[in-house]
Design a binder for these strands. Structure first.
Length: 415
RNA sequence: GCGAUCGUAGCUCAGCUGGUUAGAGCAUCGGUUUGUGGUACCGAGGGUCGCGGGUUCAAGUCCCGUCGGUCGCCCCA
């Protein structure tokens, strides 16, 4: 009979156990803690959306939409997509779920997202993001709020030094248009010096040339016009208010004049927290103001700002968290003790004690297992202990052991 | 989508220029100690050498393909 092959995981997906899972959870727990401090409401949005939600909001020509989405027709023939990011789905919910009445609305969520990419360090096909958004707020205070949230989160994760905030402004539409035209003119003039990719970007989106990683492009990029010369007074004031907010909250930041966003609906503030510890994946948290997105989905003009962070990337950067361990492990010996142990376990767990049971092997094995969990105490119960209604409680660190009446176990573990 | 590199037990790896029954450590299970762990010793189980083809008297070892991991390009979280 042919033995069947055990299935392989889908490429770019992960299963986590032990330290990896602990790290992941530590990031999510910190996020949820800080989220509450900042008053961002917990929301849940679907993994599946109509394909149009992402196609319209991200732009049909972006890499994400044109070649990285997990899209398929469901059984009724509708084209649906597994979210490649959170913002579009939240914007959709803002429109379709009546969330507009709560504007300005501060929301946060986390979960899996999907992109069909070549996996590598810090890059997966199913990856997980933290996400924070403020919808319906045009004020620079919202930008500051969202940035302070990100900054405090990273500090609580112990990444205050390793992740650096790079900040830029893309100005308002008027600014952007003028700057874009100037860039086009500049790059057109140096066309021959540009790489092939950059020449392709020239007509479609000259702003993106600033992103180029081709070293040969850099001299031309360095001499390109800077946005500051094109900022309208409103846009300049807006950016000034954001940086002033950051400064008064003592958040360290660096101006990154070449930091841009490809999509047209981005306005004003754009930022990334960067690191050099993750190889090619330097961005650990990124976001910006997307005042044009809700309109692109057919809604009313709605200023908004938000960010997303990669949970896996943060997990890889933080110090290893303390592993979870039970407070005690029950070691029953013999059938009668086994039966009594189940009752004791249930009782202690109801009282909030984290306790496990070692039920396999001889006593030596059971003690080994108890010690291996990292528990503080082993509670030994055999025939003698049943008679006396008192367990032998062994402190696994000091090796000291004494009899403790069943009724007093909780107190002795807590002590 | 492109490039590089790797793929031997559950895990980490060793197997020299192709040559008899493929090894180690850790882990697992059992024992020395049938009621006491974190040490030591003894023993056991566990491998289609990723998969498929080819070269050869002979392939884990060479060649081709394929799948997967890793790293980079691209893109991004």
């Amino acid at each position: 009979m042919a033995k069947i092959q055990p299935p392989q995981p889908v490429r770019g997906t992960q299963s986590m156990l032990g330290e990896e899972a602990d790290r992941f959870h530590a990031v999510v727990a910190a996020f949820d803690r800080v989220r509450r401090l900042f008053g961002f409401k917990r929301v849940e949005v679907p993994v599946l959306e109509q394909t149009a939600v992402f196609a319209r909001s991200l732009g049909e020509t972006t890499d994400v939409v044109s070649k990285e989405m997990y899209s398929f027709k469901d059984r009724s023939g509708d084209s649906v997509t597994m979210r490649p990011e959170f913002t579009a789905g939240i914007a959709r919910a803002y429109l379709s779920e009546g969330w507009q009445q709560f504007a300005p609305l501060k929301v946060a969520t986390h979960g899996p997202a999907f992109r069909y990419e070549r996996p590598q360090k810090g890059r997966f096909r199913q990856f997980h993001q933290l996400d924070a958004e403020i919808l319906g707020a045009a004020e620079p205070q919202a930008d500051v709020e969202v940035l302070l949230f990100a900054d405090q989160l990273l500090k609580e994760l112990g990444l205050g030094e390793t992740a650096v905030l790079k900040l830029n402004t893309l100005g308002d539409p008027e600014t952007r248009r003028a700057w874009r035209d100037a860039l086009h003119e500049h790059f057109q003039g140096h066309r021959d010096a540009l790489s092939e990719e950059s020449r392709e970007r020239l007509e479609r989106n000259p702003v993106r040339i600033l992103d180029s990683k081709v070293h040969g492009d850099w001299p031309v990029i360095d001499s390109a016009p800077v946005i500051d010369d094109f900022l309208t007074s409103e846009a300049g004031e807006f950016f000034g208010a954001v940086t002033a907010g950051l400064d008064s909250a003592a958040v360290r930041w660096e101006r990154a004049p070449r930091l841009v966003r490809g999509l047209d609906y981005y306005r004003h503030t754009a930022f990334e927290f960067m690191t050099d510890t993750l190889g090619a994946q330097g961005t650990v948290l990124a976001g910006g103001r997307y005042d044009g997105l809700v309109e692109a989905l057919g809604g009313p003009h709605t200023p908004a700002i938000g960010w997303a962070a990669g949970i896996e990337r943060l997990s890889m950067m933080i110090a290893a968290p303390e592993p979870e361990r039970p407070e005690a492990v029950l070691v029953p010996l013999g059938e009668r003790a086994q039966a009594a142990a189940v009752r004791l376990l249930a009782d202690l767990r109801l009282r909030g004690i984290a306790i496990d049971m070692a039920y396999r092997g001889n006593m030596k094995k059971r003690m080994q297992r108890a010690a291996a969990t990292g528990a503080g105490f082993a509670l030994i119960i055999g025939e003698d202990e049943l008679e006396a209604e008192a367990a032998q409680v062994k402190d696994l660190k000091t090796g000291e052991q004494r009899a403790v009446a069943f009724a007093l176990l909780e107190a002795s573990i807590r002590a």
